[in-house]
Design a binder for these strands. Sequence first.
DNA 1: CTGAAAGCGCTTACAG
DNA 2: CTGAAAGCGCTTACAG
Lengths: 351, 351
Amino acid sequence: MNIRDVARAAGVSHQTVSRVINGHPNVSPSTRRRVLQAIDSLGYRPNRAARALAGGPVDSVTVLTSNTRLYGQASALEGIEEATRAAGFALGVRLIEAAEPSAVSDAVKRAIEPSGAIIVIAFDKAGVATLDAVPPTVPTAALIPAPAEGEVVRQPSVWIDEYQASKDATNYLLRLGHRSVHHLSIPSWTGSTQRMSGWRSALQEAGAPVPRPLLDGWDADWGYEAGRKLAKRTDVTAVLCGNDDIAVGCIRAMHEAGRSVPEDVSIVGFDDVPLARFYSPALTTVRQDFSALGKVCFAKLLATFDPARALMQPLRLPKAKFIVRESAGPPPARARRRSVKPPRKPTPRSI
Amino acid sequence: MNIRDVARAAGVSHQTVSRVINGHPNVSPSTRRRVLQAIDSLGYRPNRAARALAGGPVDSVTVLTSNTRLYGQASALEGIEEATRAAGFALGVRLIEAAEPSAVSDAVKRAIEPSGAIIVIAFDKAGVATLDAVPPTVPTAALIPAPAEGEVVRQPSVWIDEYQASKDATNYLLRLGHRSVHHLSIPSWTGSTQRMSGWRSALQEAGAPVPRPLLDGWDADWGYEAGRKLAKRTDVTAVLCGNDDIAVGCIRAMHEAGRSVPEDVSIVGFDDVPLARFYSPALTTVRQDFSALGKVCFAKLLATFDPARALMQPLRLPKAKFIVRESAGPPPARARRRSVKPPRKPTPRSI
DNA sequence: CTGAAAGCGCTTACAG
DNA sequence: CTGAAAGCGCTTACAG
């Protein structure tokens, strides 16, 4: 079953079928209709390999990511899958083994397919290195941590707008009466992030001290290690974590050190993983819609080589949303701030 | 840069280059060496589209799955990615939107590529329906829930050997003094599973009553709902859950009902998700290596069309391992069994 | 608006 | 053991 069978069924030449498939102008409406009908009744599907080989339009995208098990990456992949499916694109996946140049260039080479585009999930070091290694000739877009104002973004990129949510979370803790808020940040390679600047701004505007953020890890193990250190300091009563895994590790460390959450110390996460609301205590966190981000990234990618089609897609960046649950509360009595305003509910509603 | 450039550099015809690339016999060692050298120094990579079009060997696999965010699916995908990468295969992904015939057949059609094979992650209903819908002409293998003895498996399939681990978990609870163990199973469409038969065997061999298992859901929400029902029954002192998400939901429901875990009721999960050991209480669970399963599945797939190469790959099914942590303990005093042996440590070590 | 020609980069028979 | 031929299914100029 090929383009010639369709042509025969429609009583035209195979080039005309090709024109119809590719939405070229200069096909009479009646011819177009007949061809479409033939395609439909024959159940014809164009051969991707042949299209690619003949220099057809970009019709596949390969996602480069260092990990598909992490919530953000897995969700983003899902969003990208939906967007590519809706647009009729094939989707490939290739893992980046490490941030070393050889691993990165190997991943990139494998990802480049004839008539294929690339999306890099550049949340981490390996991802950023990969993004830099993609040749400028291949259509590329990236998912990156939200850059703070003034940061330079080179490739077409998307991120979750999280400045306000990060500030909301920090303000919430301050209004609860905490003197300051510590930050267990995720590592950053793209410069300063909105997540961090939102936190810092809130502290500065409130005249609260700005502790040095810790930023060396991603996972619960690291959150646990960092939490053990913080647990020893009774002046630490509130911690904003770079993601929910870190928060969970941190809470565990607090518990083991005999400090209750949220009675002795308040912990706020980031992401709102599916289990966050079932955790004990349920995680106060910032929700991020990575799936929506994946879709926007595909739209941005499409815009680089097919602007007309890209107009049909959503291009607004998703916004993070602060979610109140149980893991944050007022500080213990002796650590309480002098001027305690009653904590105001933040704008976004809790769940 | 194509096969002809390589041929020129090596001083041979392009067919000879093709032979070398495809490992055909009848190429003199010295010619082979020269060609390989030319390929290397030119950095030549065969064009996948052209190979596919010309009827070359299978060199890509598409994974069909209903969800990439769940731990099992995401981990399996990662294992498959590594295996395909090592073998030089491209990897595609396509989500199955629903278990309805139209969604399933759409997913399958999109997944079939020229010279491509298919792996179906058939843990759930949509996956099983998809597996049935793949035409027998395309090389296919599946990841499925471990079938109980006597169950018929049609396609080449792999699973995690979990009968013993499920039995170990149940026995552990019985030895702790519980009169019986309830089961919040994951749904099953492929017939009876090892997970359930291991649980049942342990109960029967101990002469313990076998409660009717609940099996209607996958996620923490369902575990929470089911947990609320079980929380009302004081005769329920031990629950074996079909996965860690269900366990977490169940624990949450118990807590809200004022029943402590593990003091009032013991909860055991399945999977050992990365956060399991950081949960409060740390989850006693059964570890499953889905990544290894993904690799084995690729090997099984390879065996269907390239037996010689498949021999190089691991073909033994991974074994689940019971992991002791904190979420299971002896039943409360009044519910205790008469004959209490001191709980023996199970063979697999805790973490 | 539509058809005949050439070619994308490869592979598999077919000759020698 | 190696080279000349044909063709996979499509697309993009080129004619008309």
